[in-house]
Design a protein around this nucleic acid. Structure first.
Length: 265
DNA sequence: ATGGTAGTAGAACTA
């Protein structure tokens, strides 16, 4: 059942292995009022997905993955409807990177946008195309009047404020002008950055801290690349949004942490 | 921060 019948909380989390992070995710769902949690980098094929653990916790879970890399899931307190994976165009569906469902009347997408490796790598061209294909999917199936939220590790820091050192990372695959442009074009379909809506001009708000950077959280060496992007009507009903840094400071954490938004239903 | 760490693997790869 929903935690609060007049509100809905929707969150996103790159788990970096859902099996390694299983107890943390179950504990987080138990301790918070989140109704929907979109997960990325589950790193597990569907036949090995730990769905019983969620069922025993009274949660629903839809998933689409593969061995070792990528993989997405949507955890919810109420049953998901019309669950579909992948980009449904003429290209590769890429099911381990995209899962959508309708939950409590809201169209929810869990996306793990390709990282891109380096700006001269073919995977970076694939990333740019992927963002365009995702916009096309939205255009095919929805209008901006729908209640829709795109959640996930979108692997883009949209603005200089979203990265600890924009100058040093000007050529990075998550911040290069070409990827920010592709991301902006996707958002221009009609998506509002719900976190930034509630924290305009606030720096040092990051969802990802590289394991390799020592004391990254304390030093603020992070990136805001995990996003909750809502259609205008849904975004207008958002009441607050936050990043749960405690989970990044916990024992054996993911390198990403939870981003959450609350909406009036 | 041009090195570093974590996860899946069971050696390199991806991030």
């Amino acid at each position: 059942m929903p935690e609060n019948p007049s509100k809905i909380q929707i969150a996103t989390f790159n788990a970096n292995s859902i099996r390694t992070r299983l107890d943390q995710i179950l504990g987080w769902m138990s301790a918070t009022q989140a109704d929907v949690l979109c997960v990325q980098e589950t790193k597990v094929q569907d036949s090995d997905f730990p769905q019983e653990a969620f069922q025993e916790a009274g949660l629903h879970v839809a998933f689409s993955g593969q061995k070792s890399h990528a993989g997405v899931a949507i955890i919810s307190r109420t049953p998901p409807e019309d669950v579909l994976c992948g980009l449904d165009d003429d290209g590769p569906p890429d099911c381990p990177r995209l899962l959508r469902a309708r939950i409590q009347g809201i169209n929810v997408i869990s996306a793990y946008v390709p990282q891109g490796r380096s700006i001269d790598h073919e995977m970076f061209a694939y990333k740019l195309a992927w963002l365009g294909r995702l916009r096309a999917l939205l255009e095919r199936h929805h209008t901006t009047a729908d209640d829709l939220i795109l959640c996930g590790d979108l692997n883009v820091a949209p603005e200089p404020i979203d990265i600890h050192d924009p100058k040093a990372n000007a050529e990075h695959v998550d911040f290069h002008p070409s990827v920010r442009e592709a991301y902006a074009h996707m958002c221009a379909w009609g998506l509002v950055d719900v976190f930034r809506l509630h924290h305009a001009d606030v720096p040092d708000q990051y969802s990802y801290y590289d394991y390799r950077v020592r004391n990254a959280v304390d030093r603020g060496v992070g990136w805001r690349i995990d996003h909750l992007l809502a259609t205008p009507g849904l975004a207008a009903r958002s009441t607050r949004a936050w990043i749960d840094l405690d989970a990044r400071r916990a024992e054996r954490p993911s390198d990403h942490t939870f981003v959450v938004a609350e909406f009036d239903l």
